[in-house]
Amino acid sequence: MKKLAFVVLMGALCYACGNSAEESPKTNTTEPADKTATETPKPADDMSSNPDYTKGLSLIGNSDCLTCHKVDEKLIGPSYRDIANKYENNEANLSMLAEKIIKGGSGVWGQVPMAAHDNISQDDAKAMVKYIFLLKNN
């Protein structure tokens, strides 16, 4: 009898754990597969209709960037907001930061180096930086 109760209990537990994904509705969006990118705080005004914001968010969410960076908190690297507040939004900084994403670097934010991302195109790296610039505190 104890074995039967145990089997029924384990079956119910497996059923409960396995069905949680089915309860959430599936939507057809172009948002990144990595949900941590979509859960990041947005600036005070809603930027979700800004193409630079949505493209950059998608690219960052589909890369390994969130392993080392967060929007508002230092993780391994600086927060995106700290980067946005440090650099003026101009073409020179856009190009320089895009190159840092592609080639990597160290020394600006401490001794931990940022890995190179040579698989990211110049245009995509610039789109990522444009997104970061939009996070600047006013």
Rank of each mutant, 00 (worst) to 15 (best):
L66W: 03
V8L: 12
L59N: 02
K136S: 06
D52M: 06
K70C: 00
K26Q: 11
M128V: 07
L94D: 11
V108W: 05
K35N: 15
P113L: 00
Q111V: 07
H117L: 12
K136T: 01
D52N: 08
T67W: 12
T40P: 04
A33Q: 05
G107T: 02
G107Q: 08
S49C: 01
P113K: 06
D82A: 14
A115S: 08
A12I: 06
L134N: 05
D124Q: 14
G110H: 11
L59M: 06
G56A: 02
S79T: 06
M114D: 02
E88L: 05
T30C: 01
E91V: 08
S49K: 15
V112Q: 06
W109G: 14
V71T: 10
D64C: 09
P41D: 00
N93I: 01
L134C: 13
H69W: 05
Y80V: 01
G110I: 13
C65Y: 11
N62H: 04
A115I: 13
D64F: 11
G110L: 06
K70V: 01
D46G: 08
S95I: 04
H117R: 08
M47V: 12
G56N: 08
L57R: 03
N85H: 02
P43T: 03
A127I: 07
A116D: 07
Y15E: 07
D118V: 09
D123M: 00
A127F: 05
K126H: 04
N19H: 10
Y87S: 00
S106G: 02
Y87L: 09
L135N: 06
A12Q: 04
A125Q: 11
A115L: 05
K86E: 10
V71E: 04
K136I: 09
K26R: 13
K136N: 02
P41F: 07
S95Y: 12
V71Y: 10
K86Y: 04
K55L: 08
G11W: 03
Y80M: 07
N89I: 08
K103F: 01
N19Q: 15
A116Y: 03
F133L: 03
I60C: 13
K74Q: 12
K55H: 05
G77K: 00
S58Q: 11
